[in-house]
């Protein structure tokens, strides 16, 4: 008989026993590893959003898992409440002022971490069921910023950035939202779609500005005159002295029994007669200009001919090389007679 058939019952018994033992061993180790029989302490926290949170999510302290999330629920005010437990071995770290922070990777990979920051508080650990604020809310941020919690000082740079960028991004997001809202309101007010005191003020300002523009145009002429006068008045040796000196020309002009006035008037009359004579002389010269021009042209021709004679005499074969042939070039001067006659 084959060994298997002969010892079938033993083999099957061993086969079954080993399987059951394996299952039992797995369950025991699971129980130990997952702390089935250990005492856990439950606490409550609150977050703005449930994204990144999930049931069974580990709560970490300096990289160690100290607890896990048991329950997540959306409250009436649209905030998220979580119930979580802390292992009994780490219960003494749950001191007053402790804070929870959901650290999410800003680049989208690496998942989220629920980080526990123990408070720097005096006294016994918080009672089971106590509320531990998260950094999603003002109280948690206040504790973190005012140094009421022990933060990870020696964590790596990336984790530090990841842990801190969450609240910064939240704040930035809120600021952007507020700015957006404010800009929308201003835009609505300026476009007139939203009634308010600012629109009335702006309309009145527009009218005032139009009136002011007209006033300024008038004022600019006055200002120019004033500027000129002011420049003359600023010279102490000039107009001012003449105006103020009792022996000055102004005073004399004003108080000399019209002597200066008469004298000036006679000068003006003489100047007027001289100007008339000059005018008649100019007319005469203008009339004689063609004759003068012709005389000058004739004189010039005579001089040219005399020059030829002199050169002919110089170049005479009897005397020397004779007379050079003359190339007449047109005169650049064209008198009134050349054109008109």
């Amino acid at each position: 008989m084959k060994f298997r058939i002969r010892y079938a019952e033993q083999i099957v018994g061993l086969f079954t026993l080993l399987a059951i033992l394996s299952l039992a061993a797995i369950l025991i180790f699971m129980g130990i590893n997952q702390r089935w029989f250990a005492k856990d302490y439950s606490f409550v926290s609150q977050f703005q959003s449930g994204s990144g949170l999930n049931r069974g999510m580990a709560i970490k302290l300096k990289g160690f898992t100290i607890g896990a999330v048991d329950k997540i629920e959306l409250l009436e005010d649209n905030t998220v409440q979580i119930n979580f437990h802390i292992f009994d071995t780490y219960y003494n770290r749950v001191l007053p002022n402790s804070v929870l922070q959901l650290a999410t990777s800003p680049i989208g990979i690496g998942g989220s971490n629920l980080v526990f920051y123990p408070g720097i508080g005096q006294g016994p650990p918080l009672e089971e069921g106590a509320f531990i604020p998260s950094t999603d809310f003002a109280e948690g941020r206040r504790r973190l910023e005012s140094g009421l919690v022990k933060t990870d000082e020696k964590e790596d740079a990336v984790s530090s950035v990841v842990n801190r960028i969450g609240p910064i991004l939240d704040s930035t997001y809120k600021t952007i939202n507020s700015l957006n809202s404010a800009i929308t309101r201003i835009d609505n007010t300026l476009s007139g779609t939203q009634p308010g005191p600012l629109l009335d003020v702006l309309l009145q300002t527009q009218q005032v500005m139009a009136q002011l523009h007209e006033t300024l145009e008038n004022t600019s002429g006055i200002t120019a005159n004033l500027e000129k006068t002011s420049a003359q008045l600023s010279d102490t040796q000039g107009l001012v002295q003449h105006l103020l000196d009792p022996k000055g020309s102004v005073a004399k002009l004003l108080d000399d029994d019209e002597e200066l006035y008469t004298h000036i008037q006679s000068i003006i009359a003489e100047l007027e007669s001289s100007a008339a004579e000059l005018s008649s002389f100019a007319g005469y010269v203008n009339e004689q200009q063609p004759s003068i021009t012709a005389i000058l042209q004739e004189g010039r021709t005579a001089l040219q001919e005399s020059q030829d004679v002199m050169q002919g005499l110089q170049n005479n074969p009897l005397l020397r090389r004779g007379i050079t042939e003359e190339y007449t070039s047109p005169s650049t001067f064209r008198g009134m007679r050349d054109g008109g006659y």
């Binding site: 298997r4 058939i5 079938a8 019952e9 083999i11 099957v12 086969f15 079954t16």
Partner: peptide
Amino acid sequence: ITMQLLFTGVEAL
């Protein structure tokens, strides 16, 4: 049953 466990279980292991 024993033989069935032997043929189906043990031999398929």
